[in-house]
């Protein structure tokens, strides 16, 4: 995808977001006018913001559409894009596991081990796994000592 494409998609998302916000706002704050003696109810200011967001996003969309400079039509390159996606997937798995199964510290240990092994995979799997496990044990232990024992936080 090019920068132009991503810019356009983001503008469209913002336009949809602005409209969705306004719709939800006017539903949830439909009693707005009851509370206002001068027409300035709880939805008044947010409606202005929603309008501004849509207008500004349309302006960006049009500006971007007309911009054919080499920078804008260049293809997007994201170094380590795979690692970013895997990190997001691991975060989703971690949060789901923590929320539905519990065992926070076990989840932390597993997440740290996988992340460090993965991030250091260029040094070889065995080496990375060993370093990952060792670091995770110490880090999880430190977090347990600090948050679980000293600050007495329950996760």
């Amino acid at each position: 995808m090019t920068w132009k494409g991503l810019n356009s998609i983001m503008s469209i998302i913002l336009i949809i977001g602005g409209i969705g916000y306004a719709v939800n706002l006017n539903q949830s704050a439909s009693q707005a006018l009851i509370f206002s003696s001068s027409g300035v109810g709880p939805a008044y200011f947010p409606n202005i913001l929603a309008g501004l967001l849509v207008i500004l996003s349309v302006m960006t969309l049009v500006k971007n559409f007309r911009d054919n400079s080499p920078n804008n039509i260049e293809k997007i390159t994201t170094h380590n894009a795979g690692y970013i996606l895997i990190t997001i997937a691991l975060m989703v798995a971690f949060l789901a596991s923590w929320q539905f199964l519990g065992y926070f510290y076990l989840n932390v240990f597993v997440l740290l081990t996988i992340l460090m092994t993965l991030y250091r995979i260029e040094f070889g799997f065995k080496n990375s796994l060993l370093v990952g496990i060792t670091t995770s044990v110490f880090t999880t232990g430190f977090l347990y000592g600090l948050f679980g024992q000293i600050l007495a936080l329950t996760f």
Binding site: L14, Y21, N24, L25, S28, A29, Q31, A32, F35, G41, P42, A43, F45, P46, L49, A50, L52, L53, L56
Partner: peptide
């Protein structure tokens, strides 16, 4: 504008009406 919108989400302090939740 995005920051302002995020700041308006929740119960309106002047009227108690919930907004964009």
């Amino acid at each position: 504008v995005l920051g302002l919108i995020a700041g308006t989400v929740g119960i309106d302090s002047l009227t108690g009406v919930s907004r964009a939740t």
